[in-house]
Structure formats: C-alpha cells, structure tokens
Measured scan of single mutants.
Amino acid sequence: QSSFEIPDDVPLPAGWEMAKTSSGQRYFLNHIDQTTTWQDPRKAMLSQMN
C-alpha cells in the first residue's frame, strides 16, 4: 500500500463508495462492477494527472 492517504474531501470516482471495517480500515466498493478493493481509486486518478 502507498504511504500517503488521500484526504476524505477528495471525491471518489462515479460509482464508488468508501466504507470501513469494524477495525476502522478503509476499503472501497465499486458499485459499477460490484467489486471491493483495499486500493483507493483516487490514487490511480491522481497518478494519471501527474
């Protein structure tokens, strides 16, 4: 996992939702293809902008 956290005020891509496990770990739900991931989809968006 990357060492940086994206602030919560940065919006997720369309169709995504952020949730937390009972222990507080963030994960991401993709409602478009109905998958979940630990990888923040905003990181991919930001790396494409740089």
Rank of each mutant, 00 (worst) to 15 (best):
M45F: 14
E17G: 13
H31Y: 06
P13N: 00
D8S: 10
A19M: 06
V10Y: 12
N30D: 05
L46R: 13
T21A: 08
F4A: 08
P13R: 00
N30G: 00
S3D: 11
T35C: 15
R26F: 06
S22C: 10
P11K: 07
T35I: 15
W16F: 09
Q1W: 03
M49A: 13
Q34P: 01
D33P: 00
P41K: 01
P13I: 00
P13C: 00
Q25F: 07
R26P: 08
Q39K: 11
D8E: 11
Q48C: 12
Q34E: 08
P11F: 12
K43A: 04
Q48P: 14
D40Y: 01
P41M: 00
P7F: 07
F28P: 01
S47P: 14
R26L: 09
R26E: 09
T21D: 12
Q39H: 14
R42P: 00
I6D: 01
D40P: 03
P41A: 00
D40M: 01
F4M: 12
N30L: 00
P41S: 01
G24F: 01
K20S: 11
T35K: 06
P41R: 00
I6V: 08
M18F: 04
I6F: 11
K20F: 14
S2W: 04
P13F: 01
M49F: 14
D8R: 06
W16N: 06
T35A: 05
L46N: 10
P13E: 04
N30K: 01
T37H: 08
D33W: 09
Q34C: 11
T35G: 03
N50S: 13
I32P: 01
D33Q: 13
A19C: 08
R42T: 02
P41Q: 00
Q39P: 00
S2V: 06
D40A: 01
T21I: 05
D33L: 14
T36Y: 00
P11L: 05
D40S: 01
W38Q: 07
M49V: 14
L46D: 13
L12W: 03
P41F: 00
Q25I: 07
H31V: 08
P11G: 06
L12I: 07
M49S: 15
T35E: 10
Q39D: 07
D9Q: 10
T21E: 06
P41H: 00
Y27Q: 04
E17K: 06
K43N: 10
G15P: 03
A44W: 13
T36K: 02
P7E: 08
F28W: 07
I6A: 06
K20A: 11
L12S: 03
F4K: 15
E17P: 03
Q1M: 12
I6K: 09
E5A: 11
D33E: 13
N50T: 03
H31I: 06
S22P: 11
Q25L: 11
T36D: 00
L29H: 05
I32E: 15
E17Q: 11
I6N: 07
E17H: 04
T35S: 11
Q1C: 05
D9G: 10
T35V: 15
E5W: 08
N50G: 06
T21Q: 04
D40C: 02
H31Q: 07
S22I: 10
F28V: 02
I32R: 10
M45Y: 15
P13V: 01
D9H: 12
T21S: 10
A14T: 11
T37Y: 00
Q1V: 13
F4H: 14
T37W: 01
N50C: 09
P41E: 02
M18E: 15
S3Q: 00
T35P: 01
A44E: 12
D8A: 09
S22T: 14
M18L: 12
Q1F: 15
E17A: 11
S47Y: 03
D9P: 04
T37G: 03
A19H: 08
A19I: 04
T35Y: 15
D9W: 04
N30V: 00
Y27C: 06
K20W: 11
P11D: 02
G15Y: 05
E5F: 09
G24I: 00
S47L: 13
T37M: 03
Q34M: 08
P41Y: 00
A19E: 06
P7Q: 12
R26N: 15
V10D: 11
F28Y: 07
S3A: 05
M18W: 05
W38M: 09
L29T: 08
S23V: 09
A14R: 13
M49T: 15
V10E: 14
P13Q: 02
Q1I: 15
Q25C: 09
W38R: 05
L12K: 03
L29C: 08
W16K: 05
S47W: 07
N30S: 05
W16P: 02
N30M: 00
T37L: 01
K20N: 10
V10C: 09
E17L: 04
M49H: 06
M18Q: 10
L29A: 05
L29I: 15
G15S: 06
D40E: 00
M49P: 14
A14F: 08
T35R: 06
F4N: 08
S47K: 13
D8W: 07
S23R: 10
E5Y: 10
A14P: 15
Q25Y: 06
F4W: 03
H31P: 05
H31A: 08
D8V: 07
R26M: 13
D33C: 12
R26I: 13
P13K: 02
H31G: 05
A19G: 08
S23C: 11
D9L: 06
T35M: 13
Q34D: 05
G15T: 04
P7S: 15
T21K: 04
W16V: 05
V10M: 14
S3F: 03
K20E: 13
G15I: 00
P7N: 15
Q25K: 10
R26A: 08
R26G: 05
A14V: 13
S22Y: 03
E17R: 04
Y27M: 02
Q39A: 10
T21Y: 03
F28C: 02
G24C: 03
F28K: 02
D40N: 02
S47R: 11
K43R: 08
Q39T: 10
P7K: 13
L29W: 04
Q1H: 01
V10F: 08
M45G: 12
Y27I: 03
N30E: 02
A14N: 12
A19Y: 04
D8N: 11
S2I: 05
H31D: 04
P7M: 11
P11E: 07
S22G: 11
L29Q: 10
W38V: 07
L12M: 13
L29Y: 05
T37R: 01
D33T: 15
E5K: 08
P11Q: 03
T37P: 01
S22H: 01
I32S: 09
P11N: 12
P7D: 15
T35Q: 06
G24S: 05
Q48T: 14
A44K: 05
M45D: 15
A19F: 06
S23H: 10
A44D: 14
D33F: 15
V10A: 12
T37A: 04
E17Y: 00
M45I: 15
S2Y: 06
Y27H: 03
M18D: 04
R26T: 13
K20T: 12
